[in-house]
Structure formats: structure tokens, C-alpha cells
Design a protein around this nucleic acid. Structure first.
Length: 487
RNA sequence: GACCCUAUCGUCUAGAGGCCUAGGACAAUACCCUUUCACGGUAUGAACCCGGGUUCGAAUCCCGGUGGGGUCGCCA
């Protein structure tokens, strides 16, 4: 299985690679570590990687970076998969799991050891900690001092017996590593700033920076689109790639997304699963549209479909500074998509949400018509379900509301209206005038009748147009609630 | 502390030296519509971090400062 996988990837790289003018087939990847849910920042990274591949007719790969055995969980893998599916970001290859590629990493490490681009280091963790602390107290950047790094003419310490070594990458000590970042421009690091990072732990398992390199190489990744927090890993990865003789991919580092309050998002503060947005009644297309505009732009375009996004998406218009998440705008977008959404889909979703609360819509007002009547007034599916709730459940108007609107005059007028409603043509074009006429006859203004009607029928003062509400509720339910409300 | 990134309305952003009296969107405010609340419509207020250069001309280029962020693990 594993060898077949590697073989296939090699093959695809050959296709993109060699002939005089290489026609590069775009291959991007999203590579989350399964230590938690898919949050909004990860979702945007995934979206951009996906869109870039789609834009160029390329391949989008999903890779699960699960080498941190202690923190990775199958539940988190599932959460990521669920989030991606909800967003509709389908991958073309994968998901690949790094834990299943151990053999391959070990082969490469062996090759590097042999080639002298990596070496064994026996320094105990405690000594490393002490070293870092000393460096820090001297105001230096903490880093490995190269005590086990082989140099010509240098005498290495004698390896202690019974101590398994880690493997370190032999990073160049002079010169610079630079790349042309697609969002940040040229980024340059002095090799002197870098130290010899551990690429394999004492137990033999490879570490993140190494696995990424081997995977990006094997999988023929052409464009690495990832979070800003990886900028400092990039020079190390580039150096390893070069030591391996691999082609260095193009990098694009996305700046981070801040919370609504301008603070950085973390598990402890503000970061929520994309599935929470589903729960809260957001439409995936709204979330996607919002995320697309957070850090990327296409002139003044604010609302667009994913098809348009894919057509327009480019790396040139990605913002290089951090963006603050704005729930208000997401809400506005969601409302926009909600208004355009197909009524039957909304009805099904509303039914599901009501049933989750133990409320049945069977035998009640036609949900399709109800939803059509209410959808302009809700920003989320949750709000829609909540708004529609009184049509299907017992209604209890607060005594304040009743006291405010159910005056004696109003009660009398409603009693009259009740009689008229018994045999009136059941459509709002007849119901509306009937209410008006009743009000006039009673010497009342329209709101003096409409408001108490709202309170009795739905238990609240804010509802859609009262004639439309009455029509959609149906004669039986309206008369029943009126009689009981007036009793 | 060191290194790296970053800086236009409250927020997301347009802006590639003259099209900028800085545009759009969300939010805000006012008015219109109206049967309440929304929706919708119209209008208004609101920004180039600071200081130096370069240039005939800078929001745009360069340098410095300041603010914000990231990274310095046998985590990813």
C-alpha cells in the first residue's frame, strides 16, 4: 500500500517535471494536525488551498499530520473531515496519514545520515534546557550549539552507552535562505540564525518539519499555502529540501485571523469549530464567502458564489496583515444567502431544528409557506426556526404584553373579527380588509387591532404582516387561538 | 531578548507615483416605506500610525521610530 502510494506520487512528479518548458500542474495541500476541531483559520487556509488548485485545474490534497501521537485523536480526524465536508471542500487525493508513512521517513533519514546532511546527537534534554536558559539570560536567541555536529578536524565527544540519540539536520551555517513568498514578498533569513533542528526523536519517530518536507516532496506539492505561523519553519524546510535535492515549492503564508475583539484566537479564547457555525444556523456558502473576503479581495466584490470565487481567486490579492473576524458582517452575508435560499431546503432544515426541540410540524401550518413568509426576517437558520416556533407550539403571551395590547376596546373588536373570520374567503387579500374594516367600525387605528392579534395568535408583538400570518396559520388554528385568547 | 512579519474609516477591504476632494461593504446615524418588528430604499458621518528622505508630484518607493503579531521544543 505504502509503496504503491509513493510510486504513484513519483510518477506524477515526473509528469510535471522535466521537459524543457515544464507545464506545472498545480498541486496544493491542506495539512492539519488532528489535535482538535477545524476552526475558522484552518477553514480559510483550506479554502484558499482548495480554490487555488481548482482555479488552475490542479489537485487538492488532504494530509493529516498526526505524528504527535500524544495529542492526535481519531475524533479530531473525524472532526476535520466533517468540517471539510460541511464546507464542501472536497479533496482530490488523500486523506494521507503521516503515521502510515513512517517507513518512508526512516529511509530518507537513513539516506541523510549516510550523506552527512544529518547526524546523531546525544545531548540530554535537561542539558538542552539549561543551554537555552543560559542563552536566553544572555539575551541571545536560544538554539542548539552544535556540540555533536561533525566538522572536519573536530573531535566529537564519545557517544554515551545505552543512550538513544536524536537525529539533527546539518543546517548550513553561513549565507542566507530566501524565498519569494506569494503574499509577503521576498523573505530572507540568515543561516546563522538557524540551528540544527531535530528531525528524528530518540525513539526514531520523525518530527514535523521533516515529515512536511518529505511529504511535500513526495506528493509533488507545487504551492504551499498555509498559516503565517509557519514562516519561521520555512527556511528550515527549504534547507532540508535543498539537502535532499528536491524542488522547493512556492510558498504563500496567510496572515492570521483575530477574534471579534481583536484578540488572537486560541482554544481558550474565541476559536470555535466550523461545525459550531452549522449548529448556530449559518449556511456554508455564507461562511465560505465571508472567509474568502477575509484576507482576499477582488475589487469591490462582496457577495459571490464559489464558482465565481474559483474563477477570480489569485495569490496576488491576498492581504498580508492580520484580519479581525466580524460576526456582524458574517450575519449580514448569511441573511443575504438565506433570503436567496430555496424554500423547500429551508423548510426541511427548519423542520429538523424544530424536531430537535421536540416540536412537530405535522398537522400545523404549511411549513413551506411559513418559511417563505419568515425568511426575510432571519439572519440564521436558528433564528428562522425560533421565529417560526410559535406557529407550532402552544403560545403563552406574557401578562405585560396582554395588559399593554388587549384593551377592552380591542377585545370587543377582536370578538367581532372572530365572527367575520368564520366564513370569510381565506386569503390575505380578504383578511386584511376585514381587519381594517373591523378596526374602523370600532373606532380604532389599525395597530390597535393588529397588535393584540399578534399577541393572541403568536404571543409576541413582532411578527410578519398580520394578514399574511393569519392566512398561513389557517382558519382552524386562528379561530381556536382567538377564542381561547379572548376567553 | 533575538529573528521574522505587519500598519488605509469602529471592522473587512479597494488602491501597483499623478485617475484620491481616498472608493466599496458591514456596523452607526437620519429619513422614506409601513400594520408591529424586520426587509427594502435614500442620505450622512467616519481612515492613509509618526518622523525623515526620493520625486515636479507619495496612501503608494526608501530609511528610522512606534504600535500590533508570529517564532525561538525530541508540538504541529
Amino acid at each position: 500500500m505504502a509503496s504503491c502510494f509513493i510510486g504513484r506520487l513519483r510518477c506524477s512528479r515526473r509528469i510535471c517535471g522535466f521537459s524543457g518548458t515544464p507545464i506545472m500542474t498545480v498541486r496544493t495541500r491542506f495539512a492539519p494536525s488532528p489535535t482538535g476541531f477545524l476552526h475558522i483559520g484552518g477553514a480559510r487556509t483550506a479554502l484558499f488551498s482548495w480554490a487555488f488548485a481548482r482555479r488552475h485545474g490542479g489537485t487538492f490534497i488532504l494530509r493529516i499530520e498526526d505524528t504527535d501521537v500524544a495529542r492526535s485523536t481519531p475524533a479530531a480526524v473525524q472532526a476535520i473531515l466533517d468540517g471539510m465536508r460541511w464546507l464542501g471542500l472536497a479533496h482530490d487525493e488523500g486523506p494521507f496519514y503521516q503515521m502510515q508513512r513512517m517507513d518512508r521517513y526512516k529511509v530518507v533519514i537513513g539516506q541523510m545520515l549516510e550523506a552527512g546532511t544529518a547526524y546523531h546527537c546525544y545531548t540530554p534534554t535537561e542539558e538542552l534546557d539549561a543551554l537555552r536558559e543560559a542563552q536566553r539570560s544572555r539575551g541571545e536567541k536560544p538554539r542548539y550549539d552544535g556540540r555533536w555536529r561533525p566538522e572536519s578536524g573536530k573531535v566529537l565527544p564519545t557517544p554515551p552507552v545505552g543512550v538513544p540519540p536524536v537525529v539533527r539536520f546539518r543546517n548550513p551555517q553561513s549565507g542566507v535562505v530566501a524565498w519569494n513568498d506569494q503574499v509577503k514578498g521576498r523573505v530572507e533569513f540568515a543561516n546563522a540564525e538557524l540551528d540544527d533542528l531535530v528531525i528524528a526523536r530518540a525513539d526514531g519517530t520523525p518530527t514535523y518539519n521533516f515529515c512536511v518536507v518529505v511529504d511535500d516532496w513526495d506528493m509533488g506539492i507545487t504551492h504551499v499555502i498555509r498559516g503565517d505561523d509557519h514562516v519561521n519553519n520555512t527556511p528550515r524546510q527549504v534547507n532540508i529540501l535543498k539537502a535532499l535535492g528536491a524542488t522547493v515549492p512556492t510558498y504563500a503564508h496567510l496572515s492570521m485571523i483575530l477574534g471579534d475583539d481583536g484578540q488572537k484566537l486560541s482554544k481558550r479564547h474565541g476559536a470555535v469549530s466550523v461545525m459550531q457555525y452549522d449548529e448556530d444556523g449559518f449556511l456554508p456558502e455564507a461562511v465560505l464567502n465571508y472567509l474568502a473576503r477575509l484576507g482576499w479581495s477582488h475589487g469591490d466584490e462582496e457577495v459571490f458564489t464559489m464558482a465565481q470565487f474559483v474563477e477570480w481567486f489569485d495569490l496576488d490579492h491576498i492581504t498580508s496583515s492580520a484580519a479581525q473576524f466580524n460576526t456582524e458582517k458574517l450575519l449580514w452575508l448569511n441573511q443575504h444567502f438565506l433570503k436567496q435560499a430555496d424554500d423547500s431546503g429551508l423548510a426541511a432544515e427548519t423542520k429538523r431544528r424544530l424536531e430537535a426541540q421536540g416540536i412537530s410540524t405535522a398537522g400545523g401550518p404549511d411549513l413551506l409557506k411559513v418559511v417563505a413568509l419568515y425568511k426575510d426576517r432571519a439572519a440564521t437558520l436558528k433564528e428562522l426556526a425560533d421565529a417560526v416556533h410559535p406557529l407550532y407550539a402552544e403560545v403563552h403571551a406574557s401578562s405585560e404584553l396582554r395588559a399593554q395590547h388587549l384593551t377592552e376596546a380591542a377585545r370587543a373588536a377582536l370578538a367581532t373579527l372572530c365572527e367575520r373570520l368564520v366564513d370569510i374567503a381565506w386569503e390575505k387579500t380578504a383578511i386584511g380588509p376585514a381587519i381594517k374594516e373591523t378596526a374602523i367600525a370600532a373606532g380604532l387605528k389599525m395597530p390597535q387591532v393588529a397588535m393584540p392579534l399578534r399577541v393572541i395568535l403568536l404571543g409576541q408583538a413582532q411578527t410578519p404582516s398580520i394578514d399574511a400570518i393569519i392566512e398561513v396559520m389557517g382558519r382552524e388554528l386562528v379561530l381556536d387561538r382567538l377564542k381561547r385568547g379572548l376567553a
